Computed example of a mutant assay.
Amino acid sequence: MRNIKSNRQLDYSKFDTDMTAFVNDNNIKSPSDYLIVTSIKERITYIFEKEGEMWVLIYRWSCTVGKPSTPTIKGVFAVGVKYPAITSEGSKVSAKYATNIVGEYFYHSILYDLTGTYIYDGRLGVAISHGCIRLDTNNARWIFNSVPEGTTIVIN
C-alpha cells in the first residue's frame, strides 16, 4: 500500500485556517512540482505548484467526499495509476479521469451513466460518495493529464 510518504507526523493546526501555511510550514515534499491536498471537512481539493522552495496554491476546487458509512481515507499518499474511466462491478454509473490514491480510492469526475454521455449525479461539496473524491469533470481531467504518478497527496 502506498500510504504515508513521510515518516513524521504533520502539524494539522493550520489545516482548516490557512492551507498554504499548512503545506509550507510542514515542509511537505513531493517528487513532482505538484501537491494535492483535500480537506474532507471543507470538501475542498487544493492543487499546489512548487515555486523555488515554496508551495503556491494554483487551484481550489469543490469536491464530494465519502459519506459517514463509507468515509474517505485520511493520510499521506502518492498518485498511482490512472484510468480514462472506471465503473464498480454491478454499478449503473461510471466516472471519468480516475487517478488512484490508494486501493479502491480515486480522484475522479462526477458520476455518469455507463456510456459516459449523461450526468448521473453532478453534486459537489457534499459527503455522498463511497469514499472516492469526486471533482468537476474538467478538474478531474486536469489532474489526470497534469499530475504525474508519485505526486504527494494529503487528505485530512
Rank of each mutant, 00 (worst) to 15 (best):
G90S: 14
I40R: 04
V37I: 10
Y112C: 05
D33T: 08
V126K: 10
S109E: 09
S88E: 00
T45Q: 13
V65N: 02
F77R: 04
G66M: 04
E104M: 10
S32R: 08
I36G: 00
K74Q: 14
Y112L: 12
S91D: 07
G75I: 03
R43Y: 07
C63G: 05
Y120I: 07
M19R: 07
I119T: 11
C132A: 07
T64C: 04
G80E: 12
I155W: 05
V23Y: 02
S30N: 03
I73G: 04
A85T: 13
E53K: 10
G125I: 08
S94G: 05
P148N: 00
H108D: 15
I40D: 10
W142I: 01
Y46R: 03
E49Q: 15
L114W: 11
A127W: 08
M19A: 10
L35Y: 06
V126R: 11
G150A: 12
P71G: 03
G131E: 14
V56K: 15
S146W: 08
D11A: 12
A21C: 06
T115S: 15
I153D: 00
V37C: 13
Y118V: 14
Y34S: 09
Q9N: 09
P84Q: 05
G90T: 13
G80T: 11
T99K: 01
A98P: 00
K14D: 13
S62P: 05
M1H: 07
A95T: 00
Y97R: 13
L10C: 06
D16A: 11
I143W: 02
R2M: 13
D33V: 03
T38L: 01
F106P: 12
C63K: 02
T137Y: 05
Y107W: 15
T151Y: 03
M54T: 12
K14H: 07
W55K: 07
T151P: 02
A98S: 00
T70S: 14
M1I: 08
Y118K: 14
I143M: 09
S88G: 07
W142P: 01
D121A: 00
